[in-house]
Nucleic acid binder design. Structure first.
Lengths: 222, 222
DNA sequence: GTCTATACGGCGATAGAC
DNA sequence: GTCTATCGCCGTATAGAC
């Protein structure tokens, strides 16, 4: 058995780590995000994974299944944290900075994921359903409806206190997500308009991390 | 001459209006938004325009030039109004509802434009530059930099008054645009999560038209 | 200007050796 | 499991008649 492990094949110069299936997934992840599903080429994925094109079909049968697998991975990671935090029992003053910080961290590491997900969603309506039950699975069964009603309950209570202005959970969440995700989805545009390079954009996001929670909570103040 | 007008050719059953070039542009507009640039097929555009495939090449040489023309049209229309309003001399309390209202109107009529534009921007970095000088051309030469500095000046003045909290023009505009555009870019997702049909989404946007200006201006209050 | 017909290449997918 | 070789379609682009 030790012999089997030692007998690993030689690999393409670039990515000698992990088994083939994993390397294919990682390569597909990169290429689908770079080119979009329609623009991606099986050959480019194979090259980037350091394997032959035929092997992609061995593991994933055809391009559409591979694309679906990647979409699930990426979309799940982008929208997972929202539900998680929204369901917690922390006060709004804790939740909002927490979500903002977590999102900006995560998206800084994968800045092109939002653009990819939104693009796919537009061209493949069926992915909508696919995404929401991917989310439900991640949360161990918390449906979007449950998340929204839990949040609405918390908001109503604060309204009754007189400590925030009335707002629906739908509008609350939409606003919060918009403010976090859109700047990444529109990153190339913002960089162009504000004349930012890579470092400038990072600085802009850092400023946002400080400014956004205050902006958002302020908007709720009665 | 009257004879020439009367001698119009018979056309495909569906779109008998306008000259061929215009019909091709309109068809391309629809198809590129539906499928994305990479997913769009010249044949589908030709069918939708009621002309032959070869005619597309007669007018636009190749697919990439047609795609560029459409991108410019759509992207320009999505982002044009911002600069226009930001440059005006109205008070913030006028500008914000005005931008929100105008955007929500326009996007309600073309709800898939934002998703298309963001998707293209991600896959074709060169389109970033293309877009910003398309915008400059529309404004008759008002560069993004000019728009931002004009807005910053207005904000600084209000800060000095003590009538709003300090905020940079970049963050101000990013927030405003995010809140207006993102819900459309993510329309399929929001409809899924909130269990909305077409009418439900329209109602959601109508609610937003009322709620958003107040939310935004409230956030600026000192 | 608009059509029909066709050339050409690229890409997804499979067959089959190792 | 992984590779080489190849098939067959589909999509862009062009040639040329009308």
């Amino acid at each position: 058995m030790a012999r089997k492990v030692a007998a690993k094949k030689k690999r393409a110069a670039s990515p000698p780590d992990g088994d083939a299936e994993q390397r294919i997934l990682d390569a597909a992840h990169a290429v689908f995000i770079r080119r979009g599903t329609a623009g991606a080429r099986m050959q480019e994925i194979a090259d980037e994974a350091g394997v032959n094109k035929a092997l992609l079909h061995y593991y994933f049968r055809d391009k559409s299944r591979l694309a679906a697998a990647i979409f699930q991975r990426v979309a799940g990671s982008v929208f997972a944290r929202i539900a998680e935090v929204a369901l917690s029992d922390a006060a709004l003053e804790e939740k909002v900075p927490h979500i903002v910080g977590a999102y900006l961290d995560q998206l800084s590491r994968a800045p092109y994921a939002p653009g990819y997900v939104l693009g796919e969603l537009n061209h493949h309506p069926e992915r909508g359903k696919q995404l929401i039950d991917a989310l439900a699975r991640r949360q161990g069964g918390a449906t979007p409806r449950a998340v929204l009603s839990r949040l609405q309950q918390q908001l109503d209570q604060r309204v009754a206190n007189g400590t925030i202005k009335p707002i629906s959970a739908q509008q609350f969440l939409t606003n919060l997500i918009s403010l976090c995700i859109f700047p990444f989805a529109a990153k190339p545009l913002l960089c162009g308009v504000m004349e930012l390079d890579e470092a400038g954009f990072a600085a802009f996001i850092e400023e946002r991390r400080r400014v956004l929670p205050e902006f958002f909570l302020n908007a709720l103040r009665p």
